[in-house]
């Protein structure tokens, strides 16, 4: 591009604000990830019932935090990047929270047991008593 470049005397170190000197953290994270995978596999096959989801999600969050912070260098990123990531997560949480909250707090007849039921494209299965009669 520009031919009229003037030499710069800036030291090279400027371009690497955070040189990392060792691959050990990556190795540790990798091992930790494998460990956590094993853990989630074990807890997953224990059929924990109501606890299965929170446990699995907690482990997944821990794993993704490791990936984001170490592998993706969030620990050495600028504030703006961290903010971007955090904001995205906040909005994901919002989307999921309000949508599920809607489904969870609808009036109880909204989707009676036996749904899916009666639309033009599939004939009703398991109709309730007092269901709107068909022609």
């Amino acid at each position: 591009m520009a031919e009229s470049a003037t030499p710069s005397s800036k030291p090279d170190a400027d371009h690497q604000p955070h040189p990392s000197h060792s691959a050990v953290p990556y190795l540790v994270v990798w091992l930790a990830l494998l460990g956590l995978t094993a853990l989630t596999y074990i807890t997953g096959s224990m059929h924990l019932g109501a606890w299965a989801l929170p446990v699995a999600l907690t482990i997944a969050t821990a794993k993704s935090a490791l990936v984001a912070v170490i592998f993706m260098h969030l620990n050495e990123s600028s504030g703006a990047t961290r903010l971007v990531f955090a904001t995205a997560l906040v909005f994901v949480a919002l989307l999921i929270f309000f949508t599920v909250a809607d489904v969870a707090t609808r009036f109880k007849l909204a989707t009676p047991a036996g749904a899916p039921f009666g639309t033009e494209r599939s004939q009703p299965e398991g109709l309730l008593e007092n269901q709107v009669p068909d022609e």
Binding site: F107, L109, A110, T119, E120, V132
Partner: peptide, 29 residues
Amino acid sequence: LMTSRDVIHSFYVPEFRIKKDVLPGRYTD
């Protein structure tokens, strides 16, 4: 107690000031 057979409709009576979508696959009231 309302439902729809095909797509979403909405039950509206202006004089009553009521309106509610009528949804396929579930009930609204």
